[in-house]
Amino acid sequence: MVFTDTHTHLNSEQFDEDRHQMIQRAIDSGVNRLFIPSIDSEYTEGMLTLAEEFPNNIHLMIGVHPTHVKENYKKELAIARTWLESGKFVAVGEIGIDLYWEDTYIDLQKKAFRTQVQWAKEFGLPINIHCRNAFKEIFEILEEEKSDRLFGIFHCFTGTLEDAKQAIGYNLKLGIGGVATFKNGKIDSFLAEIPLEHIVLETDAPYLAPTPYRGKRNESMYVIKVAEKLASLYHKSLSEIAEITTQNSIDIFGV
C-alpha cells in the first residue's frame, strides 16, 4: 500500500533531533509520498535540502503562510515568486487567511492570498489553502477567482458539510487529518457524505496528531491512523483508502 501525506512540515524545528529517522519511519511504513508546504523565505533552503536528500519521496510547495503576512509581505511575495519561476515546486502553498490569533493584517492577508491564487492559475499549479476562522473571507476570494485553472487542496478541513460542498465546488480536494479521529472533531459525523474522490490525507505534522497520539508530536507515518478512520467511516478496506486518496493526490499535484 502507498499512502500520501499531502501536508507535512518535515523541516519544522520539532524534528531537528530525529528528522531523517522520522522521514524514514514514514517511508518504511508505506507513507512514501510526502508534500511540504512553505511558510516563508526562511524555510525554503531547508525544504530544498530535504527534497534533494529524498528525491523520490519529498515534493515541495512554495508560498507565504497567512500568519507570516506582515508589513514586509511584498518582499516575501517577491521571493516566493522567484522560487515559483524556478519550476522546482508542485503547488502554491500554504496560502490563505488566518484570523484565529488576530485580524490586524486581514487586508494584507487577503491581498497576499489573492495574488498567490492568481499565480497558481498562471502557472497551472494547485493551491494549498490554510483557513482558520476565515471561511467567509476565503470563499469570497475563491468565488471571484474561480475558473477551470483554479484547483487544489483545502488543507486541514474542519468546516461544516455546507463548507465542504462549497470548497469542492471550487475544484478543491479536502485535506483530512488528525481532527477526523478526535471525539470532538465533528467532521467525522458527515465526512462519509463526501465522495472519496474529493478526499486526500494529511498530517500537518508536527501538529494535530491523530488519536491515539493526540497531544504528542505528530509525524507523517501517523497518516495511516487517519486512513484507518476513513476506512471505518466509508466502509472500505485500508488498501482502498490508500489507493483512492493517493490517486487523488496524483491528480492534484501531477507527481
Rank of each mutant, 00 (worst) to 15 (best):
V2A: 06
T4E: 02
N11Y: 13
S12G: 04
Q14H: 13
D18R: 11
R19T: 10
R19K: 14
H20R: 12
H20N: 15
Q21P: 01
Q21M: 08
Q21H: 14
M22I: 13
R25F: 12
R25N: 15
I27R: 04
V31P: 02
L34H: 04
L34F: 03
F35L: 13
P37I: 04
D40Y: 04
S41A: 15
T44D: 09
T44H: 12
M47H: 03
N56M: 11
N57T: 13
L60Y: 05
M61D: 06
V64N: 01
H65K: 00
T67S: 13
K70S: 11
Y73P: 12
K75G: 06
E76Q: 15
A78M: 13
A78L: 13
S86P: 03
K88E: 15
A91C: 10
V92A: 07
W101M: 12
D103W: 05
Q109K: 11
T115G: 06
V117M: 03
F123P: 03
F123K: 13
G124F: 08
P126C: 05
P126R: 01
I127E: 00
N128K: 00
N128V: 15
N128W: 00
I129N: 00
H130D: 00
F135G: 00
F135Q: 09
I138E: 02
I138T: 12
F139C: 01
E140W: 07
L142N: 05
E143T: 13
E145V: 11
S147A: 11
S147W: 07
R149G: 05
F154S: 10
T160C: 08
T160Q: 12
L161V: 07
E162H: 10
E162S: 14
A164I: 02
A167F: 09
A167N: 06
K173F: 07
K173Y: 11
G177D: 00
V179T: 14
T181W: 04
A192T: 11
E193A: 11
I194W: 01
I194L: 01
E197G: 14
I199V: 09
D204H: 03
Y207E: 07
Y207V: 07
P210K: 01
T211V: 15
G215C: 07
R217E: 01
V223W: 00
V223Q: 01
I224P: 00
V226P: 01
A227H: 00
E228I: 06
L230R: 00
L230A: 03
A231D: 03
L233N: 04
K236Q: 14
K236G: 00
S237Q: 13
E240T: 11
I241F: 08
I241W: 05
I241D: 05
E243T: 12
E243V: 04
T246P: 06
N248Q: 11
I250F: 14
G254C: 08
V255C: 09
